[in-house]
Design a protein around this nucleic acid. Structure first.
Lengths: 231, 231
DNA sequence: ATGGCGATTTGACCTTCGTCAAGGTCAGCC
DNA sequence: GGCTGACCTTGACGAAGGTCAAATCGCCAT
């Protein structure tokens, strides 16, 4: 029995839609791997040797300057595809934010397999186009939004994204959730400093818009207010 | 004779690699269109009805907030592909910066054609992946770089991008070039204000790093200085 | 409970860049 | 040539957010 048979993202990842013969072939070139929180999987500017599907957990994609400034340029959730197929180098590092499990492929194997399976390439294309849309709307946030707008937009996005992956079949966005980010990582997503993030969180709490039961937990008390603040 | 036969981007656009029968079929569903500087081709949040290849000219991709702030999220040069295939809506407006010619397709026709031609989809995938890489490195700039770093990075990127499209077979980046952007548009690319852009340009000129022969012309006098400033 | 440590919050201060306003430049046009 | 209007530059000022430093919190090991 291939491990794909028991894969929880089997029907959401790019492997969805492959027939059982194809799944077996893909299974033959991939293997599961556990990544612990904080552990890197792919390094910026290294040769692109590895691509993967996220099975569970959350990972960050980052780029850094020489002097150590970091920007989180993407976040990968279960069923997302990570790595750079069809290109010699990865332009972003991938590091686990939580303990995670991924299904990794050598890039060469994956590239070859993908070129032989147009349906898979099509799924990858759809995903890449959607990711590009999301990335572009994040550029708007980075370039033109104020700190309060950034924080409000971020909380709403988290509330949407984390609802999708929850076990309980939730409808609509999550009211309460656990951030997979430290304050520094929130700052790295939004192009702010940790202090500014902290101050804005506190401000929203004092205004009764959110509650912060613990460092990582957020509860949205007044969603319309957040939507309005998000600009 | 199909207009593809005389197309100047025939060997660089995603149509490259199609055989003559396929080219004819693609030609049958596409048509050339001229767009004058300032004219929009696609509107943000509208139904995605149109995709296109850029034949010549430069176009901007933008997103805007309700209150009118604008962020340029991409720039399309000759041979680039624009529009949102396989999705219901365009998440960015496309507006010509210079007079331009494009080869447009109805999105439905294009989607159908692409699904039947895996080689074309593969080219589109490669392009989309490369664009995602570029977009992510721009996020680093928007989120973490200072105004002087942004301007230096921008000038170096322009010098590279505009060299590729020049008629004279240049080797390496252009030393002197004509910006396809107004000062306001440079500001919209970099997430700055027009005043800051102007001040930084003037500062670089006074420091002898660049020369500004006219409003749109830039000559790079000290490229190493620019590279060092870009951070 | 106590101590220690990293993460977070808070406060005081300061820099960068945005805002507002005025003036300059240039191309096209009469 | 001078007028017009769009675009750009420059200056004075202020606010948003960054920097630095100290206090606090939460958690784990003792």
């Amino acid at each position: 029995m291939s491990s794909c048979d028991t894969c929880v993202v089997r029907n959401r990842a790019i492997c969805a839609g492959l027939d059982s013969r194809e799944i077996n072939a893909l299974n033959a070139i991939g293997r599961r791997r556990a990544v612990t929180a904080g552990e890197p999987l792919i390094w910026e500017d290294d040769d692109s040797l590895l691509v993967a599907n996220v099975i569970d957990g959350v990972l960050k994609l980052t780029t850094s300057t020489e002097d150590g400034r970091e920007q989180i340029v993407g976040v990968a959730y279960p069923s997302d595809f990570i790595g750079r197929p069809f290109g010699p180098t990865s332009k972003a590092s991938v590091v686990a934010l939580t303990d995670a499990r991924v299904c990794v492929f050598s890039r060469n194997d994956f590239d070859r397999f993908a070129r032989e399976h147009p349906e898979l390439e099509h799924k990858l294309l759809e995903r890449t186009l959607a990711e590009l849309d999301r990335t572009r709307s994040w550029m708007m946030l980075l370039g033109r939004k104020t700190a309060p707008e950034k924080i409000a937009t971020f909380l709403l996005e988290m509330s949407d994204r984390l609802a999708e992956t929850g076990c309980t079949p939730t409808f609509g966005p999550a009211k309460r959730f656990s951030l997979p980010f430290s304050r520094q990582q929130v700052a790295d997503v939004l192009g702010l400093t940790i202090e500014t993030v902290s101050r804005q969180f506190t401000k929203l709490k004092n205004e009764g818009v959110i509650e912060l039961p613990s460092r990582r937990e957020v509860e949205i008390l007044d969603r319309p207010a957040l939507v309005s603040l998000a600009g």
